[in-house]
Design a protein around this nucleic acid. Structure first.
Length: 621
RNA sequence: GCUGAUAUAGCUCAGCUGGCUAGAGCACCUGAUUCGUAAUCAGGAGGUCGCGGGUUCGAGUCCCGCUAUCAGCUCCA
């Protein structure tokens, strides 16, 4: 937010109203700092030093500058690009002749603390852009920044003998900047351009008080504890193998149990909603991918090979299989909307640097469906899919947001059809009273879409589900149905995924539940701990009963102390640990440690069985 | 793909500036112990230190290449 006001008194510093005032919030939401405010700033709300979004915005921006100042003192030849505030703190991009590593962060932090102690006033003044260009003539990074500034005057902030081109806002004095932490050092392309020079970027975080900083650090530890890669190894859910290749997950028995449960739940919910299961081949002739446009638009990400002198491609998407199945026989308008679904295994050549546990892999399985319908049916079909998405998200307790992406500049199809489709998407959401954002011009070239983003346990957003309206592929593959008037018409295709992919979804689920999956998903649902050897047959008998109900159990009857076996069982994060001893055998009961209720109680074996069967019904979507 | 870092037993990690048969905890195996709600005791086995080359009298340690992972950038389910 660039300030258009004429505040060019130098050195000018308005006297703070209170010791704790670090800026003002204008009615239009604009934040100005004490250096910029004039007496005319009426109706402004004071921003004091706290953890409000406005205060943090100022605080973090100033901490970024403080860091720059410290870096300049430690590395005199440092040149700075930009240092903005981002969701998770702030960063500054810069260049030095010396390499900076993680171990240097402490040194920089120390220098920053020294500067804070000096209680340097942070002053602001304005100069013309021409003056600025002259002033920073030996600094090509600043020149690059200046090039992007449209206004004729620019502001400079000064603290001690450090000056930086900046639009602010800033706190009035470095003394406000006590609670910060430099988190990591990384490379970043100048201007985000892959082909440009790479600068050094240091990330940091800052808060108004020590408590907030501590709370943040705790949250980071919690995130680490929940990391699906860590839990996946500990719980033996999945693995990767260096020699087999990057981004190719292996599902171990426990992970496969979990995944299979999710697959089955979702399979049934599709069948209940009238989806027809289909399955296409994993590999198709390249010619198919030329027709679809993938070869041209997505070719770099495809794995191609040759069979008997013909080029083939592993499928990166499932659309073609479904289209060819649709086309295999003449379809009537009576067949529409026709919903084909498949757990489609796809391969995409993701760049090596973006692979990330199960969240980003090269082989994954989409819960993919394609719905063939008439343009008039788009709305009810989308409505139904949105309800489906909502049911799934609610089942797992996820917060999610939706975003509609509209027609981009480069698009195919009539404006009229785009209008119908986009409106249908909007109506579907409006009628469901669901909030959504709009990404103007963010749609695919073949149609508008709704993206579903899950907010995970630590606030990150992940694109999972998607609902895309497609006019393109039906055209390219000449897909038709026979209409009521016996003419041939072109159906619309709706691509949709609810989970997105099993891999990504399970990663998010794992972090969401911190590995403590609900009964209907848990890899192992019940662990029996017989107190002594003679109680094992009873445990086995119960385990067999449960297995008949497809409940996964384990018996911890090894030659270890009871305490140890209970401890091991608890560490497995299973919903129920069941202890059986003399009493239980005698009365045919079980002593339950219920993870969810965090309590212990006894039930007859029949009651327990019934409770489990009932609880499993929670897994119905 | 780019920048930087890392790679030692199934897992988590020690191993200083290059120097005898590479260590620990957990897991695993054997034996003793048979236990009422979060780690019983004793013994044992397990590593060509990611892979390939180089420097050196000597390399887990230094250098180069590759592979993989991590933090970002850029891009996506």
């Amino acid at each position: 937010m660039l300030l258009n006001r004429e505040v060019n008194v130098y050195p000018y510093q308005r006297k703070s109203v209170s010791e704790n005032t670090i800026g003002y919030l204008k009615e239009n939401g604009e934040i100005i700092d004490t250096q910029s405010s004039t007496d005319s700033c009426e109706n402004c709300r004071e921003i004091s030093l706290d953890n409000s979004p406005e205060a943090l915005e100022i605080l973090r921006h100033s901490t970024a500058h403080l860091m720059a100042q410290a870096i300049r003192e430690l590395y005199p030849d440092a040149q700075f690009f930009v240092g903005p505030v981002v969701d998770e703190g702030f960063y500054y991009d810069f260049r030095t002749s010396e390499k900076i590593g993680e171990e240097d962060l402490k040194k920089i932090e120390k220098k920053m603390k020294e500067l804070v102690k000096k209680k340097l006033p942070i002053e602001r003044y304005e100069i013309s852009k021409a003056e600025a260009i002259e002033k920073f003539k030996n600094d090509d990074l600043k020149q690059a920044v200046l090039k992007n500034i449209p206004s004729e005057t620019v502001s400079i902030y000064r603290q001690g003998d450090f000056e930086d081109l900046c639009r602010g806002p800033h706190v009035p004095n470095t003394r406000f900047l006590h609670n910060f932490k430099l988190t990591r050092v990384a490379g970043a392309y100048l201007g985000g351009d892959e082909n440009a020079e790479m600068l050094t970027r240091i990330y940091g975080i800052a808060f108004a008080d020590k408590e907030a900083l501590k709370a943040w650090q705790k949250m980071m530890e919690e995130a680490k504890r929940r990391d699906h890669r860590k839990l996946g190894t500990e719980m033996e859910l999945f693995m990767f193998n260096d020699e087999a290749g990057a981004g190719l997950p292996f599902w171990m028995p426990k992970g496969a149990r979990l995944r299979s449960k999710l697959e089955q739940i979702l399979w049934r919910s599709h069948r209940r909603r009238g989806y027809e299961p289909v399955r296409g081949p994993e590999i198709l002739k390249a010619e198919m991918w030329r027709t679809s446009g993938h070869y041209a638009c997505y070719g770099e990400n495809m794995y191609l090979t040759e069979i008997d002198g013909q080029e083939y491609g592993l499928k990166p998407m499932n659309c073609i299989g479904h289209i060819l199945i649709f086309k295999n026989s003449t379809k009537s308008y009576r067949d529409l909307p026709l919903k084909y679904f498949e757990y489609g295994v796809v391969h995409r050549h993701e760049k090596s640097g973006v692979l990330h546990g199960l969240l980003r892999v090269r082989e994954f399985t989409q819960d993919d469906a394609h719905i063939f319908c008439t343009p008039e049916q788009i709305k009810p079909v989308v409505l139904e899919v949105v309800e489906f998405v909502d049911a799934v998200m609610k089942k797992f307790g996820f917060d999610y947001t939706m975003e509609i992406s509209t027609k981009p500049d480069k698009a195919i199809g009539d404006d009229e059809v785009w209008e119908i489709a986009t409106q249908a998407l909007k109506d579907a959401l409006d009628e469901n009273a669901l909030d959504y954002g709009i990404d103007e011009g963010g749609g695919a070239f073949y149609g508008p879409k709704i993206d579903v983003k899950i907010t995970d346990a630590i606030g990150r957003k992940w694109q999972c589900g998607t609902i895309q309206v497609d006019f393109n592929l039906p055209e390219r593959f000449d897909v038709e149905y026979v209409a009521e008037d016996n003419t041939r018409k072109r159906p619309v295709m709706i691509h949709r995924a609810i989970l997105g992919s099993f891999e990504r979804f399970i990663a998010i689920l794992t972090e969401h539940y911190a590995g403590e999956f609900p009964l209907f998903l848990a890899p192992t649902q019940v662990i029996f701990v017989p107190i002594a050897e003679e109680h094992t047959p009873y445990a086995r008998e119960l385990a067999d009963m449960l297995r008949a109900e497809e409940i996964d159990t384990e018996i911890y009857d090894r030659n270890d102390s009871l305490n140890k076996r209970i401890r091991m069982a608890e560490k497995q994060k299973v919903p129920y640990v069941v202890i059986v001893g003399d009493e239980e055998v005698k009365s045919r009961t079980v002593a339950i440690r219920d993870r969810r209720k965090k309590e212990q109680y006894n039930l007859s074996s029949d009651e327990f069985m019934l409770q489990l069967i009932n609880e499993l019904k929670e897994g119905k979507i």
